[in-house]
Amino acid sequence: MKKALLVDDHPVIRAAVRLVLEREGFKHFYEASSVGEALSILREHAVDLVVLDLVMPGGDGLELLGRIKASDWLCLVLVFTSLDPLFFQERCMRAGAMAYVAKTNDLNQLQKAAHAVMANYTFFVRLPSVSQDPRQRSEKEMIDKLSNRELTILRYLAQGMSNKAIAELMHLSHKTVSTYKTRLIEKLGVNAAVHLRDFAVRNHLI
């Protein structure tokens, strides 16, 4: 009996994913709306497939991917998210995901991905070539050089979260988050923290 864990903070999305997976023969489902809930379920139950959103309260999907890869859990991961594959698909591949489907696609793509993954194939989209605009190309290169944690903190800062809120969410010290912010300003070549949001919006990171 195939079992799946659906990790998404939107109940409607989880319900839609469940219907798709039922057509692929899944009979048993666990659901989590946060990284913490997902980890608790994975520690207690064996699942065949994890369908994972990257954007959730209480943690980051990339972090969960890394935890799964480092564990001995024998589950496959299909990323189903609103984030642009141009910046996140390759990271997910490196972190062990078997498939990446953007939520802008219809659910047939999700079903095709689930079918491929359960047959032990990968399912990733063909990415467009990077724009020849020198600024866009150089910004893509800068983003690619960020660590997963740097990218996560950049997204939180761009969403207007305070250092204190980010520190609590990611279980870091306030000083550590402040150091990351300074490092991001330097690495991305912006003049001040306020411009991090402009950078993130321009590159579809939020």
Score class of each variant (00 low, 15 high):
Cys92Trp: 12
Cys92Gln: 05
Cys92Ser: 14
Met93Cys: 02
Met93Lys: 14
Ala95Arg: 03
Gly96Val: 05
Gly96Pro: 04
Gly96Tyr: 00
Ala97Ile: 08
Ala97Phe: 06
Ala97Tyr: 07
Ala97Met: 03
Ala97Asn: 03
Met98Tyr: 04
Met98Leu: 09
Ala99Met: 02
Ala99Pro: 00
Val101Lys: 00
Val101Asn: 03
Ala102Asn: 02
Lys103Leu: 00
Lys103Ser: 02
Lys103Thr: 07
Thr104Cys: 01
Thr104Ile: 10
Asn105Phe: 05
Asp106Leu: 02
Leu107His: 10
Leu107Met: 10
Leu107Cys: 06
Leu107Gln: 06
Asn108Lys: 09
Asn108Cys: 02
Asn108Trp: 10
Gln109Val: 13
Gln109Trp: 13
Gln109Cys: 04
Leu110Pro: 08
Gln111Phe: 11
Gln111Ala: 13
Gln111Val: 13
Ala113Asn: 11
Ala113Trp: 05
Ala114Arg: 02
His115Tyr: 13
Ala116Gln: 10
Ala116Glu: 06
Met118Cys: 06
Met118Ile: 14
Met118Val: 09
Met118Tyr: 05
Met118Gln: 04
Ala119Met: 02
Asn120Gly: 08
Asn120Cys: 08
Asn120Met: 07
Tyr121Gln: 10
Tyr121Trp: 08
Tyr121Ala: 12
Thr122Trp: 04
Thr122Gly: 12
Thr122Glu: 03
Phe123Ile: 11
Phe123Trp: 14
Phe124Lys: 01
Phe124Thr: 11
Val125Trp: 02
Val125Asn: 03
Arg126Gln: 09
Arg126Pro: 00
Leu127Glu: 00
Leu127Val: 10
Pro128Val: 00
Ser129Val: 10
Val130Trp: 03
Val130Ala: 01
Ser131Leu: 04
Ser131Pro: 05
Gln132Ala: 04
Gln132Met: 03
Asp133Asn: 15
Asp133Lys: 08
Gln136Phe: 15
Arg137Pro: 04
Arg137Trp: 12
Arg137Ala: 13
Arg137Thr: 13
Arg137Lys: 13
Ser138Phe: 07
Ser138Thr: 12
Glu139Leu: 03
Glu139Tyr: 05
Glu139Gly: 04
Glu139Gln: 12
Lys140Pro: 01
Glu141Ser: 09
Met142Asp: 01
Ile143His: 04
Asp144Thr: 15
Asp144Pro: 07
Asp144Ser: 15
Lys145Val: 14
Lys145Arg: 15
Lys145Glu: 13
Lys145Gly: 13
Lys145Gln: 15
Leu146Met: 11
Leu146Val: 14
Ser147Gly: 15
Asn148Gly: 07
Asn148Thr: 14
Asn148Lys: 02
Asn148Glu: 06
Arg149Gly: 00
Glu150Gln: 15
Glu150Met: 11
